[in-house]
Amino acid sequence: MTDDLSTGYWDGARRGVLVLQRCTACGHVRHYPTLLCPACHSDTVEPLEASGRGTVHSWTVAHHAFDPAFAGELPYTLVTIDVEEGPRVLARLEPDPADLRIDQPVTIGFAPGAGGTPVPLARPA
């Protein structure tokens, strides 16, 4: 069992690819990373590169910076996305569309965020 749960995700993020966990015992796809598969409790896992396709589940538009590092980016949209493979991802959305709606198709990539960390970035498909 490894505690380096997130290595696959962050390696993928730096390449611009969303990497999820897939259980090699039962095939269950999960995110965020866990040690055990919540479906079958196996600890064997492989990285799964997501297609990058998803749909909008919900969202918020940030108008207040709770961290000064984000003050210059206001307002920005955070979108909760149903990823085609099953789990969800929280991403920044650009450009900000006038009328966001549930189930709207998006594509998911990555872009450097504040501090250089790769951040999921969604665009209307």
Binding site: A62, D67, Y76, L90, A91, R92, G113
Partner: peptide
């Protein structure tokens, strides 16, 4: 996973 995107406080 979420703070780097700017999801920082409970309101968000």
């Amino acid at each position: 996973f979420e703070k780097p995107a700017g999801a920082i406080a409970p309101a968000q």
